[in-house]
Amino acid sequence: MKNILALAAALALGTLSTEALAGQPFVRAEAGNSDIEVSYGRYFRGSDHDTALLVGGGYWFTPNLAVEGHVGSLYTEYLGCDYDLDLVTVGAGIVAKKHFGPQETDFFVGARAGVARVTLQLREDRFDIVDDESSTKPYYGISAGYDFSRRWGLGLNYDRRRAESNGVNVDVDTITFAGEIRFR
């Protein structure tokens, strides 16, 4: 069995080109708007919006396929008496991109999907977390933008995240403007 696995791994690595192995790490910063909808059973529904700020990074294995991770703030509300309510996200997933210009430049469209942990935190005095509830669910999104070179580009992203805890459902739609820098 070990020999079969070793042979399969050797064949898989042998089929990869050196171009595919010479990928690019990247970092991304996103800023935009979150639209949050909260529901509890059939009787309570509420919505609000706030600024979304996220940072992420990952690795482009090819110009069209990458893995990514992100962390960011989706919502912050001051409750008074030194208390804040925060909605934060941490996630990891895959990204696909299709370019319409030569050598991975010009306009592109993309999609991403993965798993995100969304945490609702009650903080006191800006730093002390009094209580938090987390939920891990799939996330997905689409993007469009322009890559000015193989090293950097700008894009517009739409992402959908969900959370659920103790009968409370939270849906978060974000539209963000993103800048991405790739290293080689």
Rank of each mutant, 00 (worst) to 15 (best):
V27L: 08
R28Q: 05
R28I: 05
R28L: 00
R28M: 03
A29Y: 00
A29H: 00
A29C: 04
A29W: 02
A29F: 06
A29T: 13
E30W: 00
E30R: 06
A31K: 01
G32I: 05
G32S: 11
N33Y: 12
S34A: 11
S34T: 13
S34D: 11
S34Q: 03
S34C: 08
D35F: 15
D35T: 14
D35H: 08
I36E: 01
I36G: 00
V38I: 15
V38H: 04
S39V: 03
S39F: 02
S39E: 04
Y40A: 06
Y40P: 02
G41P: 03
G41F: 05
G41V: 09
R42P: 06
R42E: 08
R42K: 06
Y43P: 12
Y43R: 14
Y43V: 12
F44W: 15
R45H: 12
G46F: 00
G46S: 05
G46L: 10
S47V: 01
S47Q: 08
D48H: 07
D48Y: 05
D48T: 14
D48N: 09
H49Y: 15
H49A: 14
D50C: 01
D50A: 14
T51A: 14
T51R: 09
A52Q: 07
A52S: 11
L53Q: 09
L53T: 04
L54K: 10
L54W: 00
